[in-house]
Design a protein around this nucleic acid. Structure first.
Lengths: 350, 350
DNA sequence: ATGAAAGCGCTAACAT
DNA sequence: ATGTTAGCGCTTTCAT
């Protein structure tokens, strides 16, 4: 009423995108704001004529809807938060990439949070996440602190935990069994005729579990030297590096010079082992079989090619995204737990 | 007025975080909403007593401010968008990590966007970004399409371009000269006595520029065989892999079996070259000097250790974050262009 | 199919 | 130091 011709003024000023609102577009199209809103969000609910006029107005002005305002009004932020321990370290990359893409395709954006390897930041991070009222949170690995878990649960935000299987998921879950991997790897090495195996693992709860079940199964299969109940183990810092792999092998060889197989908790570690073996003149797989975990892109290009455990990180991202999108659409997700499994990729290093 | 005791009801229902508003907290603390707001955002502007009461109320209810609403009202979203071609590929990881951290420390969140290697998605991505009204956008590499650049500029959002130096930045810039790197690498190889060099580069504009200036300088220094004006070049697809490095070396050797030095546009490529050389029984650095780019974490652990070009990705992230934070604080950023330089890391492969 | 009114949860601007 | 009022820009609900 007290606002004669602000649209044209603004448009003339050329301040496209900034300060331009739905009202301006609606006015330009000669309709009510709500009608313009419908034209953009539910084009089917609007007449051809109106649709065309609104689209024209949008085109002319370069209008971009304010999703903050939209989110506030509709209580759908179209934002999804992903939490990784750290983005450096190639393990979760595939998952993050596929999450970003799957979500973008459905009109959602990904907010990235790094929890770090200490608990301290978890709380602040959680606050930052909840404050944005995301439509979902994807956790890689498990939230450690029980308070954080409780808090997240209480917030009512859909949660997908990934890269693990836990008997007590917060909400939804897509992962695989680290225990089963340890067992499968031990059997694979055993089937390949190895009888004195060892393991190098990063200081990380899940690596440790893979190592533990590997060790247990190896002992059960009689792959421990001289009837002892534990196989040689070397723990290295997270994130894992080639250097750790190299020193890891040295360490293991110190514990038992006759080992003929080693399971590494990451492909990076395995590659370090291969380098160290080469430097020491140990032949692979002749004298030593090497297995990794992750099937990183380089593993197939090593010489010899690395036998490893493949996880479908892209698949995890897709399923997680779908879980959240379905939930946002009001669908009840039937199977809240999705075991994505794993595959042993047989190549040359065993 | 027509709202007797909703706070306690809500609190009693235990629906913490959800549906709980500043008004509820304020009522519980016995103050006006704006006062509660001040207690949380500008604690210095409020009395001790009030501060305590509000904090208590927040504690008791588990209240988390709605940043969507806050952003809408204050026109500060505390959100920063980062655009990378793809998150897979280790080059930008350090930068993204340090961005996330620096921003989180200042109360900002990072939104991750992947532009992909085709232009098609750039436009949709830009729309999604502008729609969130972020306080800043960090671009790794340069926005290709001119319309996108214009659009971003028009939106008025502070922009930091990174990983390059361009004479015509959109807004702010933190990077380094790819040309200077090519020149420096050529000189380094020349100083090491190499006289027949070649280059393997990913199909990527910046890799190509490093390769070009390397080639030019090499020719100038007389490092091309038989007085030709171009050195052997092998282009490989992006993102680069070990496999590309291996086939790349084969290809180069096919062009000129007597090359004694090769510059790779990434450490991954360099590593592939080293593997292929080892398989072929070519000694490094004896017969062939190898240089990479990126100084990835594994490069120091290779055998021989890789001589490479180090870029301070963490530094780039920090400076970019500071640029945006300063701008959001209303400070005028004096030097909008920051050359972060590069370092040649001399190790064993040359 | 279109519109009017009300409000999402917060903060800026102006009192007091 | 604290409160009142009036939006931020959109969507929901309820008319028409």
């Amino acid at each position: 009423m007290t606002d004669p011709q602000p649209v044209l003024e603004k448009v003339r000023k050329g301040r496209k995108g900034a300060g331009l609102t739905l009202r301006d577009v609606a006015k330009l199209a000669g309709v009510a704001p709500i009608t313009a809103s419908r034209a953009l969000n539910t084009p089917d609910a609007v007449s051809e004529t109106v649709l065309k006029k609104v689209r024209e107005a949008v085109e002319r002005t370069g209008y971009v809807p304010n999703l903050l305002a939209g989110g506030l009004a509709s209580k759908k932020s179209r934002l999804v938060a992903a939490v990784v321990p750290t983005i450096v370290g190639p393990i979760f990359l595939e998952t993050v990439q596929s999450l970003t893409e799957s979500l973008a395709a459905a009109g959602y954006q990904l907010m990235l949070g790094q929890s770090g390897y200490e608990n301290s930041r978890e709380d602040a991070l959680l606050e930052a996440i909840i404050g944005r009222r995301p439509d979902g949170v994807v956790l890689t690995g498990i939230m450690r602190s029980p308070e954080s878990r409780k808090r997240l649960l209480a917030s009512g935000i859909p949660v997908v935990e990934t890269w693990d299987l836990t008997p007590t998921p917060i909400d939804m879950l897509v992962g695989f069994s680290h225990e089963n991997i340890g067992i499968a790897v031990a059997r694979h090495l055993h089937a390949a005729g190895r009888r004195r195996v060892a393991v190098i693992a990063g200081v990380d709860e899940r690596s440790r579990r893979r190592a533990k079940s590997f060790s247990d199964e190896a002992v059960r299969l009689g792959m421990a030297a001289g009837g002892v109940t534990e196989i040689p183990l070397c723990m290295v810092p997270a994130p894992t590096t080639l250097g750790s792999g190299r020193t890891g092998l040295s360490d293991l060889l110190g514990q038992d010079a006759a080992i003929d197989g080693v399971f590494c908790s990451s492909d990076v570690l395995a590659m370090g082992v291969m380098i160290e073996a080469q430097v020491r003149g140990i032949s692979i797989p002749g004298q030593l079989a090497v297995m990794g975990f992750g099937d990183l892109s380089f593993s197939r290009d090593l010489h010899p090619q690395l036998t490893t455990v493949r996880i479908d990180g892209t698949g995890i991202g897709k399923v997680a995204a779908q879980f959240i999108i379905d939930r946002a659409d009001g669908l009840q997700v039937a199977d809240r737990v999705h075991d994505i499994g794993f595959t042993i990729i047989e190549r040359e290093s065993v």
